[in-house]
Amino acid sequence: MATPSREVTSIAGGSARRALERRDLLTRWALILPAGLVLVGLMLLPMLLMALMSWLEPGSFGGVRWGHYTPEAYIKFLFDRNLDDSLSLNTDYLSIFSRSFGLAFITMLITLLIGFPVSLYIALQTPRRRQWLIFLVTIPFWTNLLVRTYAWILLLRNGGLIESGLKQMGLLQGSLDLLYTPIAVQIGLVYAFLPFMVLPIYTSLEKLDWRLLEAAFDLYANRWKALWRVVLPLAAPGVIAGCILVFVPALGTYYIPELLGGAKSLMIGNLIQQQFGASRDWPFGAALSFALLALVLLFMLIYALRFRGKGSLL
């Protein structure tokens, strides 16, 4: 009696397990579905649409002429079409790209130079103070960046706080003339992206085993050598993550140069915006976006190949 009944339960157990596995699989798919829908619907499809647009002719009043395919948008990026249909090199757009790369790169360097010591300082405090300081770093996120950028106009403009302050101290005669220059854009970028450098570096420094620093001191490394040979290599993942988090968004910034920069400090983001706005050349705007995307991916690829297998980004 006992043996057959045990067999029955084991068979039942097997099918029950299979049913459970099936349900497990279903649950898994159901859980992935919302995120998948968001990714496909809000990222993949729009990007495919943009890719398609970049190969179409522009409509006279914005939009595109569906079905009229042309590589003109990509040609326009590098060349001017003369009256006789010959092409001559046009570096205007390239110079905007290189300026954007320059501004983004300098932003990355400055935020790194400020952000690393700040993170190091915070990481060396007591846990209580650390929490406080990190909280202070995140306070700017409470206000919209657009509002904070407007605040910079008030600070930087002629007759603004900085100018009058410098005049009061007797450090400046005449006007400051800082607003609507590339330097104003640079200041705005550094201000906006500094927290994105501090937070990942702090995260990697916080995890650092400070006993290693003692070991370095014990082995004749002075403070600088210990920083250079032990702290920096171990904080490298955070430094790299911070650099990416600053460089990539800084490259595509739109309203900081829009508000703080003049005609000579146009960045890629503004150029793209213009194509979809005043210039009514959607295909060119789409092509510019893809040129930017391709360049960013290229940098990420170089990074990934360089640091392959050396731990995750964060």
């Binding site: 085993d209 006993r211 290693l212 003692e214 070991a215 370095a216 032990v230 290599p233 171990l234």
Partner: peptide, 9 residues
Amino acid sequence: FQSYALFPH
């Protein structure tokens, strides 16, 4: 050191 404190990198 008690924890050896070898440099992991």
